[in-house]
Amino acid sequence: MVSIPDYTRILFFSFGGLLLFGLIFIPMERTFPAYPNQNIIRPRWRTDLLFYLGQNLFWSWLVLWILGQFGTWLQALVPISFQRTIQEQNYFLQVTEVVILSDLLIYWAHRWQHSWSFLWRFHKTHHTAEHLDWLAAYREHPLDTVFTVGVINLPAFCLGFPLETLAGFIAFRGLWAVYIHSNVSLPIGPLKWVIGSPELHHWHHVKERNCGNYANLSPLMDLLFGTHVAPGHFPDELGVNGEGPKSYWYYLIEPFLPKRK
């Protein structure tokens, strides 16, 4: 009845994903570079590769386990009759609700990750990258991932949106998160007021902790709540103030170390 963990499959998906994303983003980064002097093999790429492999081969178990515990519990809180009402709505209405709700939630959750020092301890890891590209998107402390993935899926957990509504959207959102970290500059004209971009997210990675641009998919939430930052070019310096590069293993334990003076 239960199957043995299929490691070949896990390996296939992890390395297949790496290959696929490389195929999508490396030509883009070479053709539309935001920082033309940054090579594909840039400083600290090995650290980010370890983050990618760690997340896919190992940490996803932990994240899944924690979310599994929460998901069942959360869904039990919402009456099934209410979930049915959601499921009976028009498909496009459902999609719109999922997009707006998850964007609103992730916007505020991301602001807390920056303002609340407990969450910042874990989220800081993501900001230590001094060179951004598609691979740097994976630089995330596993417990920071638990928080983000949990919040992102909260509407789905609670409201009972059907699989059909979510499947494509989730895949798109995953790809988008990689795209906004890539070393790509694609001018999109007036669309920049409704659709997010690598340029906006690079400003989120400047050395200041209250840097703005907390939303991912669309800058609307940042515009609405006054945190939109768009000087019209890419920033010069990225990273965290006063932080030098550390090893993957150090980043994993760093949030648990006592605060330095």
Binding site: V2, S3, R9, Q55, N56, L57, V63, L64, T145, L166
Partner: peptide, 25 residues
């Protein structure tokens, strides 16, 4: 279907969809 959606949502956010004892169980 509803329960499975939760499992699928969380694991596809992780990119690699692993079939595990834990998931089926």
């Amino acid at each position: 279907r509803k329960i499975y959606r939760i499992m699928w949502t969380s694991k596809s956010s992780m990119m690699s969809p692993p079939k595990t004892v834990y998931v089926w169980d």
